[in-house]
């Protein structure tokens, strides 16, 4: 038995070793690739989150500005600015009116235009 054991050799099976190492390498590479992909996913999702947040912020700012524009162009605000003299109303000049019918003056046809009572009030 002893004699046999001395003679017995345990050769390294290079093919098997290479195969095992290759398998281990592939598993390792696969793992690393998985990690890489996972990290990429996290990074992208974080970027998407940031973009979503920026869009939400911009939308909120936009709505805020729209509300401000609405308020400034509201009837109340415009009337107040007319009253304060910041803007004034001017009658539309004849040369910028496109008339389908020729203009008629109250004194010509005897029909009373409704503007006259306003004058009385003032």
């Amino acid at each position: 038995m002893n004699t046999n054991r001395k003679k017995q050799v345990n050769p390294v099976h290079l093919t098997t070793l290479v195969r095992c190492l290759l398998l281990a390498f592939l598993v390792g590479v696969g793992g690393l690739f998985f990690l890489y992909i996972k990290t990429q996913q996290f990074t992208l999702s974080e970027e998407i989150r940031q973009v979503e947040r920026r869009i939400a912020d911009l939308r909120a700012q936009n709505e805020s500005l729209l509300a401000r524009v609405t308020e400034l162009s509201s009837r109340r605000s415009l009337q107040q600015r007319i009253a304060d003299g910041f803007i004034s109303l001017k009658p539309i000049q004849d040369n910028v009116i496109a008339r389908l019918m020729p203009p008629v003056r109250a004194t010509e046809d005897g029909v009373l235009r409704t503007a006259f009572n306003e004058g009385l009030r003032q």
Partner: peptide, 26 residues
């Protein structure tokens, strides 16, 4: 009512149907 009616008629672009009856001084 008269003032509201007058301004509303002008706003709604109603065509006056009566002939002028201007008060004295005017």
């Amino acid at each position: 009512f008269s003032r509201i009616g007058e301004r509303a008629a002008r706003y709604l672009d109603l065509v006056p149907a009566l002939r002028a009856e201007l008060p004295g001084p005017l």
